[in-house]
Amino acid sequence: MTVKPGTPVSRLDPEQIPRRDALGLLSLWSMATALLFATVGMLRLPKAAVLASPSKKVKVQLPETLADGEPFVPPGRSMAVFRQAGQVYAISTVCTHLGCIVKASAGGFACPCHGSEFEADGTVRKGPAPRPLDWLEVSTSGGALVVNEGATVKPGTKVNV
């Protein structure tokens, strides 16, 4: 049914919107748009710009007796540091599946949460983990080893010390 503007259909269904209501509609829509923008603006708040987390750089002192290929886990850190043929590298022990801390051994890594297992170089051997363990950036500063938990490097990257 087409209704000409200005003709009421019945007492209960009044005339369709005539031109003079355009202003009313306009104000409604501008209100809706303003609300939308306000909401989008507010949604920015919960996404932190600066992350409140402790420093990721860790000074590591490898024990003299550490054998080649044996993992060294600095106390309170989720990483394993290895020495091999005079070179040093670090692998994160945060499971790539759901973030549990894997156990490091000379033969590889094992996760207690859902049984993922990783080779000594971090590649997945078994279980639900979707990708290899991260290799972490190792550098030397003033003779000390520094591992950066926040920076990953290509697997296989070893540093001469």
């Binding site: 309170g76 850190r77 989720s78 759901l98 549990c100 801390i101 207690p112 949460c113 859902h114 049984g115 639900p128």
Partner: peptide, 22 residues
């Protein structure tokens, strides 16, 4: 944060999901 609870279990009504997540 260093030692995961083993096994680390969610509340019981999520354990069906956890079984799948594994």
């Amino acid at each position: 944060p260093m030692v995961p609870e083993n096994p680390a279990k969610a509340p019981w009504y999520f354990l069906g999901l956890q079984e799948l997540v594994a």
